[in-house]
Design a protein around this nucleic acid. Structure first.
Length: 466
RNA sequence: GGCCCCAUUGUCUAGCGGCCUAGGACACCACCCUCUCAAGGUGGAAGCACGGGUUCGAAUCCCGUUGGGGCUGCCA
């Protein structure tokens, strides 16, 4: 195969969701392996619904995922001349006719009709083009249009069941099916890899393509859509699955890419963690599944945790930094101390599935004022008989020992032995008093970085409250 | 309604006629490890939608049924 040219052609009518990202990824992987060209085209022919902010979100999300484009972004809104020229050609060659039927009139006429869709009322009226009338494509009454699809094989559509569809609105604006074909031809797209939802309209695209003539049809590959828990196609309006949201939650782009690649495709063996290079090397459209896949956040989180733990500590810290800073951080700006974060980073890495989870675990270090969680205080300190003795003894011993995790541990162990209870139980009141929560990073390492002065102050503060 | 697509555990998948008493992973449960929580380890429960064919042999091929989805817009 000579150098393939693929395109990703989103419409900027809503936030960019993971389904679009998956389609983009499949296109990109396919192009990369074969040394092809990945074209990015923004399909903003619908002036009512398109918006620049959505475009920015698409570009931003693709960049974040590392899905780079070789050409574009092209904007259909800037390519109107091409569509007009194609419209002229098709109209002059008789493939298009003007139609001034209203939706209501069509519905009234076709109620109970044998063949679905538009009834061809204007097909032979010879109406002139112009404002107020749309342009319809004259679909052959017989024969069939076959879609040759890498993923699905041959899909056959009977022409008589395809209505004379509109390609240009009555205000002159081209519709998706026309602009899409004109651009794919103009950009010399060789492989159209897109979501399954487009399969039913593909014969229309093929008909237009052939009517325009001169350029060989591209190869199609319709990949299964991504669905929600109710197994409905992911929707921008209904489902909260924006790529940017996952980014904001602290998912790593490499984890997202890995996970997305495995939705509808697999390497053929038991491997699940694959580098981008491995994906590029092994991805095959022929191996893409046929059935819709559910986007499972739990599984994504698992992948993310794996990727977070695999990060070198320094890299982890630098990736984490943005999530501890700024308005989302639960502490004043000037309190953050990255040296302290770095000291606890390895312990943190093992405990979070997303970067945004780190803040809650570090809050005891930077929060100002420090306020222990009420429910934990009640449960582990107020309602526990031995809590005051533990806190008092800890405060006494902590004032004198070496300030190291090992010394802290043996101090608490001695208190534990004296009480005849497990270390796990004894550390509870101390943890809540000093760290504010009953769960979190390991106690002794945490106290070490908290420092003796603050630890003692918090133990005494807790004692006062009892 | 019509057309089209799809169908392996709750989920993502391996399987492309014998290697399958169906493999891996997420989630779930139990146990181990353990200063909490995680992480890690071990084990467990859980699936070829149904019915006909074809074949010596079917999760794998064919047909039908059922179920789910998509399209059916002067959206993309």
């Amino acid at each position: 195969m000579s150098q393939p040219r693929v395109r990703f052609a989103p419409s900027p009518t809503g936030y960019f969701h993971v389904g679009g990202a998956r389609t983009a990824l499949f296109n990109w992987l396919f192009a990369k392996r074969l040394g092809g060209v990945f074209v990015l085209r923004i399909e903003d022919t619908d002036r009512e619904r398109s918006d620049e902010t959505w475009t920015a979100g698409i570009l931003d999300s693709l960049s974040w995922l590392g899905i780079t484009w070789d050409e574009g972004p092209y904007f259909q809104s800037a390519r109107r001349g091409l569509y007009d020229a194609a419209t002229d050609q098709l109209f002059n060659s008789g493939h298009l006719y003007a139609c001034d039927c209203t939706r209501e009139a069509i519905d009234a006429r076709t109620k109970g009709a044998a063949t679905p869709g538009y009834d061809g009322y204007c097909a032979d009226r010879g109406l002139a083009r112009g404002p107020g009338s749309a342009l319809r494509f004259r679909v052959p009454d017989s024969g069939e249009t076959v879609v040759h699809d890498i993923v699905r094989g041959e899909v056959v559509f009977a022409n008589e069941l395809i209505e004379d569809f509109i390609v240009v609105k009555s205000n002159g604006d081209p519709l998706f099916v026309l602009a899409n074909v004109v651009d794919d031809r103009d950009m010399e797209i060789s492989h159209i890899i897109r979501a399954d939802e487009h399969l039913p309209t593909t014969p229309k695209a093929i008909l237009i393509w052939q009517a325009l003539g001169g350029v060989a049809l591209p190869t199609f590959a319709h990949v299964p859509v991504l669905v929600n828990e109710k197994r409905q196609k992911l929707s921008k309006r209904r489902d909260r699955v924006a790529v940017q949201d996952y980014r904001a939650l602290g998912y790593l782009p490499e984890a997202m890419v890995n996970y997305l690649a495995l939705l509808g495709w697999g390497p053929g063996d038991d491997r699940e963690i694959l580098t981008v290079d491995e994906l590029i090397d092994e991805f095959r459209l022929e191996d893409v599944n046929l059935s819709p896949a559910f986007f499972d956040e739990k599984r994504l989180a698992h992948f993310n945790g794996l990727y977070i733990r695999a990060l070198p500590v320094a890299e982890f810290v630098s990736r984490l930094a943005p999530f501890l800073d700024g308005e989302t951080a639960p502490w004043p700006d000037d309190r953050l101390d990255m040296a302290v974060v770095e000291a606890l980073a390895p312990l943190l890495q093992e405990r979070i599935a997303t970067l945004a989870e780190a803040a809650a675990m570090l809050e005891f270090l930077f929060a100002d004022p420090f306020v222990p969680e009420e429910a934990s205080v009640t449960k582990v300190i107020t309602n526990d008989q031995s809590a005051s003795a533990i806190l008092l003894e800890a405060a006494t011993q902590f004032a004198e020992i070496d300030w190291t995790p090992a010394a802290l541990r043996s101090a608490v162990e001695s208190i534990s032995d004296g009480l005849g209870q497990r270390l796990g139980k004894t550390q509870g009141p101390i943890r809540v008093a000093a760290m504010g929560r009953s769960v979190g990073l390991p106690l002794f390492e945490s106290l070490e970085v908290l420092g003796r002065a603050r630890t003692l102050a918090r133990l005494h503060e807790a004692l006062h409250r009892i």
